[in-house]
Design a protein around this nucleic acid. Sequence first.
DNA 1: TATGAATGAGAGTTCATTCAT
DNA 2: AATGAATGAACTCTCATTCAT
Lengths: 239, 239, 239, 239
Amino acid sequence: MAHKKREFSDSSPKKRTPQGESKKRLILKVATGVFAEKGFHETTIAQIAQIAKIAEGSIYHYFENKEDLLFSIPEERMENFFSSLREHLEGIKGTLSKLRKIIWYHLHFYEKNQDYVLILLQNIRLNPRFQSTRAYQLIREFAKLVAQIIEEGKKEKVIRSDVDSRLLRDAILGAIEHITIRGSILGRLSTLTEATKPLYDFFVSGIQTQSSMVTLPLREFLRPKKTFRKRIGRRSTKI
Amino acid sequence: MAHKKREFSDSSPKKRTPQGESKKRLILKVATGVFAEKGFHETTIAQIAQIAKIAEGSIYHYFENKEDLLFSIPEERMENFFSSLREHLEGIKGTLSKLRKIIWYHLHFYEKNQDYVLILLQNIRLNPRFQSTRAYQLIREFAKLVAQIIEEGKKEKVIRSDVDSRLLRDAILGAIEHITIRGSILGRLSTLTEATKPLYDFFVSGIQTQSSMVTLPLREFLRPKKTFRKRIGRRSTKI
Amino acid sequence: MAHKKREFSDSSPKKRTPQGESKKRLILKVATGVFAEKGFHETTIAQIAQIAKIAEGSIYHYFENKEDLLFSIPEERMENFFSSLREHLEGIKGTLSKLRKIIWYHLHFYEKNQDYVLILLQNIRLNPRFQSTRAYQLIREFAKLVAQIIEEGKKEKVIRSDVDSRLLRDAILGAIEHITIRGSILGRLSTLTEATKPLYDFFVSGIQTQSSMVTLPLREFLRPKKTFRKRIGRRSTKI
Amino acid sequence: MAHKKREFSDSSPKKRTPQGESKKRLILKVATGVFAEKGFHETTIAQIAQIAKIAEGSIYHYFENKEDLLFSIPEERMENFFSSLREHLEGIKGTLSKLRKIIWYHLHFYEKNQDYVLILLQNIRLNPRFQSTRAYQLIREFAKLVAQIIEEGKKEKVIRSDVDSRLLRDAILGAIEHITIRGSILGRLSTLTEATKPLYDFFVSGIQTQSSMVTLPLREFLRPKKTFRKRIGRRSTKI
DNA sequence: TATGAATGAGAGTTCATTCAT
DNA sequence: AATGAATGAACTCTCATTCAT
């Protein structure tokens, strides 16, 4: 009555316990898909087992419990995300170019990991227990990296010195995330990277027209600079 | 399906303080708090009832089921949010001022409705059934309004004509949301509005320093303008 | 919707005696007994589980829900009833003999399946959802069979040609059922088959005495027959 | 904490508070309809109250509880049924005519009380608590009456002396009930009385053709009668 | 390793019934 | 007499998790 033959090992790239390791991957893959589609709480272990064509109990050989399975999803992906990002940033000169790269890479990554994003944003990120996770550390490191790059930009006088690095970082990441979520709702996830240039432009150059923008700055530019920031500041405050 | 007859019902000293409609408000208030603190799925009806000091069954007098209770939370708040925003925008001239107001108001609203935000962003927004809700319609209307204001800005030549209104809107809202979520994690929700000016500046003026920015534009400004956009475009694409 | 994690699950000394398929039978048997005794609506899943000495949840491994459990009761029995009846009818010549056999077999079956009958008549038969059931189909087939046999009898001139086959069938089945129900109330279910002969006689020979019956028919018999049925008809109608 | 008021007996056949009495009737009428349509257990007090356009609590002014409401349905109807039947039987001579009348009247009553029948047969009759009810007594009396009439018939030599009166009665009533139930399923309840003649004929004359039936009896008729019944009996037993 | 039947705590929900008004 | 908000016991059903095989 032997079911399962699986005579030929399937997709595993390397091998440790070639079979075992690949089965863990299988579970993770299936779980990611189902979680993304139906939501974590609406998904049952039984469903995952059924789709993965394994027994429910087998899932508990690889994962402590349902939440562990959930938290295991970002592990590999974040590792991947972060190391690959570092490669991509390798050799790029200039803060703004790095920033542009980060925006592009982030969108690109979300585009290629659509199901994962939804889970991350909806079910993982705010879970307090997630914060004691390796993946969470990577996210923090990534966030720090972005803030550092911005700080560099400020030192290099490419970015205005009054910019709050962490706030800017959050704004950029937030913009990326929101666009991703909108994309997922509207089914436009596959063209996410197209938003790179406009997003970059929003943040780097702002949205003002040259004419309306320059009027004031230009005069500033030709005059002594000391009062500049103050004036801007004043303008911004009078809501 | 049915219930046993309650054979002996002697032991309960029932209180009855029929405050009428206000009980619905009470439930809503308690539910919002508990949902925000523990999460929707981690909250039980029994808990809500206990905190509200009412019977579990009473909740079902006012709400169809747990999800209906959840979806009822945004109802009033969004109505409030939107109508109050309109008031705030009343009489404001200038697209950028309106935009600044919207940023401020949004942050302000989230600051005053901290628990609500978390629920909205985590448990409500992406639920497909939410989209057949009055509150969802209001959110859509609000989003449209923002995009319209941006469009106006483009017509008035205050905002660059190559700006994608909806994308900009999503970027701004995303930035606000992300900052709010970060704030909730870090316990900084009560100073949210302080982010108004920096956020506004990011989007309106960009983050580039005058010097680095003007170098190129200034030359453009002094020359014939026709090639301007093209050059910017080219620059932006070379990632 | 969801369930709390079972934080500590230490206290249970679980037994596992996987008898496989026979557990479904056990549940069915216990359920039949309790349903018959207390009625479907008055029986709780917990009671069945307790008597069967299994966990409540186990019942839901074998049956979709309580109603499915109810509707599963007739499945096997009707299959049994019908196939066994066919065997019993095998080789019997003559419509009336077949009819007698059916009456006897029906009573015999009810006698041997006392608890089942009550459930069938009280909780199953009139439930609209039952009618999309295999068991219901068998009941229909049985009913058709009886009507067919009566039709045969009419062709063979053993049964009066003016007999409405379906009505006669319903009358016979109704009589059987009512007697069964009375028997169940009076605790006489074990002598049900004794009613075979009298019931058969009621329907086949009628209840009239020879004398009172023959008086008229005999005269008819000795005279030309054509006005016979009419006269009978007239008599019957003058209520 | 005294519940139960009902200090004064309620069930008076005339009227005390014309309004009150008519409201009780209203509730009874509505309840009968809903019970018949959806079944007793599937009907809620709230539904009845809603349809009757009264408050749920009001129902408990007139009825002890839900079951009391159920058992109150037959009360009036059975009273009616029985007294009206007596009138109908008034002046009818001859057992068979009375029997015919009873069949007709029963079908007629069910035809006119369609919703009531279903409730009686499905939810009331077998409920043990019903048997301590006035209505149940009436049913018993009716059943006795039928058996008595049959006994009379035997004394008058119109009905064969070997007929078991109670069994015959049960067979007749069962036939009527089954035909009614079939009628309710098939939506033919409104032509129920048409079954009077065929039913009567089944029981009184039997279903055998004259020819097949008479062959034997005729010979008997011409010979001494004593061995007649025995022979029939013998035939009937050899199943 | 793998299985999947078995578990059982506990969740959401229902609804007959009560009683202050 | 009438109301209907309030009650809360009890029910069905779910499902993460376990463990004997």
